[in-house]
């Protein structure tokens, strides 16, 4: 098990170098001069030249990339933001707690609503509850988050004035962004739980459990659920990884000062080190969440555990 974890962590290295390379290349070829963005239109050509020299922007592409990697790996330095002049790492670490809170909250909502709805839908297949749940799941899945976010703001913030439309400091302010972000995850968790449960409750071992004279609630809640949750856990992990990295739109709409908004602003201002740092950070988080999910998976399913040697 330990060996497996170490192997997985080692495997992260090529992934991260690959991600860094891709982002670096894309930004290199993106039109727009960061020096001009930072110094403004009125800057003299000398000032721009000086900035480019100082930031190493005149070096050949591979040299720039090599320098970046060297500093990142050996000095833990992924650069300074052009616009705020502060280290990128500091900026990300200030923003990350908001993103983490938002994602965790959204994931919690998705699990608390999605799993029970999925279970009930499965055991009462084709009932009115099932039909309504599936309709809502379809809506939640097909509604883009920016659209849902705006609708939620219109209804709860503008018309009803129950909840604030932006910010993330109070519990009340957290509700709308979390719900908007959770909508797709709720739908996916519900649908996955339902289909997985439908498959499991027809399994022979469920019949065995019933033939023992076990209570139906335990047959479903223990025997079926634990087996049905295996794919749901994977989904939740992937979703959580996506929420952490994909909260960009939600953060922008609700003005949550998280990593997503930080990145959007960085892209707008050609703040190269910030964008690179942000993408790398997201890649690391996503990979770590995935690793944790795989470990959790092994804990739930003994057959997987046997394979992780």
């Amino acid at each position: 098990m330990i060996r497996y974890i170490i192997r997985r962590i080692l495997f992260l290295i090529p992934v991260l170098i690959g991600v860094a390379f891709c982002v670096f290349t894309l930004l290199y070829f993106t039109p727009g001069d960061p020096a001009r963005m930072v110094l403004g239109d009125l800057a003299t050509p000398e000032a721009i030249q000086e900035f480019r020299d100082k930031e190493g922007l005149n070096d050949p592409f591979l040299v720039q990339f090599g320098n970046y990697l060297y500093k990142a790996v050996f000095k833990g330095d992924i650069g300074r933001s052009y616009s705020t002049k502060r280290p990128v790492m500091t900026e990300i670490m200030t923003a990350f707690p908001y993103t983490l809170k938002l994602s965790a909250f959204a994931m919690l909502i998705a699990i608390i609503i999605g799993i029970p709805c999925g279970i009930i839908s499965a055991i009462k297949q084709y009932s009115w509850f099932d039909t309504i749940t599936m309709i809502f799941a379809m809506i939640g899945l097909s509604m883009p988050v920016f659209w849902l976010g705006l609708l939620l703001i219109l209804l709860f913030a503008v018309h009803l004035r129950w909840l604030p439309s932006s910010g993330f400091s109070t519990f009340k302010a957290m509700i709308l962004p979390s719900v908007a972000l959770a909508a797709q995850s709720i739908s996916m968790v519900t649908r996955m739980t339902r289909s997985s449960m439908l498959e499991v409750i027809r399994a022979d071992y469920i019949r065995t459990a019933r033939a023992k004279g076990q209570l139906e609630s335990i047959v479903i809640g223990v025997h079926a659920l634990r087996n049905a949750l295996i794919p749901v856990v994977t989904l939740c992990g992937l979703q959580f990884g996506q929420l952490l990295s994909g909260a960009i739109l939600t953060e922008s709409i609700f003005a949550v000062p998280g990593v997503g908004r930080l990145m959007v602003n960085a892209i707008m201002t050609r703040d190269y080190p910030m964008v690179q740092g942000g993408v790398l950070f997201i890649a690391v988080t996503f990979s770590i969440v995935n690793l944790l999910v795989d470990l959790l998976y092994a804990y739930i399913d003994p057959r997987i555990k046997a394979e992780l040697r």
Binding site: A203, D204, R210, A211, G213, N227, I230, P302
Partner: peptide
């Protein structure tokens, strides 16, 4: 529920799938 398992027990056809894998 008292009779199932207690008085009448059943052995199923396919042992591969009759036991809870977890």
């Amino acid at each position: 529920r008292k009779i199932r398992g207690g008085k009448i027990a059943m052995i199923f056809q396919d042992p591969m799938t009759s036991l809870n894998p977890v």
